[in-house]
Simulated assay, not measured.
Amino acid sequence: MTRFRLLAALFTTLLVLAGCGESSDDRSDSSTSDETGAHTVDTTFGPVHTDAAPERVVVLLPAYADTVTALDADDTIVGIANFLPKGARATGPWQKTPFAPSVVELGDQFDPINPESIAALQPDLILAGALQAKDQATYDTLSAIAPTYVSQGKTHDADDWQATTRAIGALMWRDQKADAVIADVEKKLADTRAAHPEIEGKSFLQVSFYQGSYLVASSARSQESFMEAIGLTMADVATQNNSLSVEQTAKLDAADLLIVQAERKKSLEEQPNWSSVRAVRDGSVTAFSLVEAKAFRSPSAASIPYLLDALTPQLASL
């Protein structure tokens, strides 16, 4: 792994201390079904379609694996990127069962894709993030192996979780299941918002600390739309490349709720001004594990109910 990718991987891990923008009635026209039964979805690199329900799926992004699980189709997964601490066998706490022992690990999500390894699995659908299908040439390479889905926006977290669920559901011929999953999660979001009117209009930030500076996670539509659905917005804090110096600690007072990574919470608590931050004084800090933090950064229909349950005790204190 090059120095650049090592830094990129570390930076991403530090920032993920991990949507719900439109309602079910605000459907986009990104997925269709024609008279032959082929299901078509628009992506940033053009339309992709499947002629039949996929039986062998390669997944290269955590949120997409979660979505397949939410659609009760995890038995179709034959290959997966190593994005969790224990590799392809690892699951988030919201997943009912681990992936099958036969599922093949396809390297680290920050590594360049290996088309030969993917092709050897004979997939009939590839779910790739913008990190893997970063340009048209790479996407064309993957598409030559099997129909390949990437986000409809330019980054994997540009789409809200409904759009992702609906698109993957269409490609996997599980449209009705996708609709049912979306309805269930939207109800839980609405119920949470109704139960906690005190959080309406409050704000949040994801924060970590590395090499003498605070790292503040940048805007991600998938995450923001999830939080907006319960009444929270991302605090508006001016940073330099997502970084704040220790002398700028007071800027963190803009957030009513801080999300931190449990494994790195100690480094924050060691900073002399951390205890004076408003959310810290108010006891409004939620610590997520690395796996939970990754899910919070790119939430899915599978992880959102779990994350809501984890956040609920903190919401009452806002």
Rank of each mutant, 00 (worst) to 15 (best):
P47K: 11
P93G: 05
N273S: 15
T43Q: 03
L244H: 01
G46F: 09
F288C: 06
L71T: 07
D51Q: 04
Q109D: 13
V207Y: 13
R166N: 04
G92E: 06
R281E: 11
P62M: 01
Y139R: 08
D184F: 12
R281N: 09
S222G: 13
V277W: 06
L17Y: 10
Q176V: 02
F204S: 08
P101K: 14
L71Y: 13
S151H: 04
G21C: 13
K154G: 04
L106A: 03
D159A: 14
I113D: 07
A100G: 06
D253S: 07
G79W: 09
G169M: 09
V185Y: 03
A167E: 02
K188S: 15
T32E: 13
L61H: 14
L71A: 12
Q122V: 05
R56Y: 12
S303F: 08
A130E: 11
R89M: 05
D74S: 11
K265F: 03
Q314H: 15
R166T: 06
Q248S: 12
D124G: 07
S298Y: 12
A88L: 03
L252E: 06
G107N: 07
R221P: 04
K265P: 02
S102P: 02
F45H: 13
A120F: 02
T43C: 05
V291C: 00
D108E: 08
Y210T: 00
T12Y: 05
N114A: 13
A81N: 02
S102C: 00
E228V: 02
A302F: 03
Y149W: 03
L125D: 07
K154D: 13
V78L: 10
I304C: 07
A144L: 10
R166M: 05
G283W: 11
Q206R: 13
I118A: 05
S208Y: 12
T50S: 01
M1E: 15
S30R: 14
S33E: 14
D34W: 01
V216P: 11
F204N: 08
A316G: 04
L318P: 02
S222V: 15
A70C: 03
T138D: 12
E186N: 09
S222H: 08
I304L: 11
V48K: 03
S298K: 14
V181A: 11
H39D: 10
W161E: 01
R89D: 13
T239A: 04
E198P: 00
T91Q: 10
T155Q: 13
L131R: 12
P54G: 09
S245Q: 03
L307Q: 03
T36Q: 11
A9S: 05
V103G: 03
E22K: 15
T138Y: 10
S289R: 07
E224N: 15
A8P: 05
P54Y: 07
V103D: 01
R174V: 01
D72Y: 00
S28F: 00
E269D: 14
A146W: 14
Y214E: 02
K188H: 12
L125Q: 06
N114D: 14
R278W: 03
S23Y: 03
A38F: 11
F45C: 06
I168T: 05
S284G: 03
A38Q: 09
A254T: 07
D159P: 10
A170V: 09
L17D: 11
Q122R: 07
L290V: 15
N242F: 00
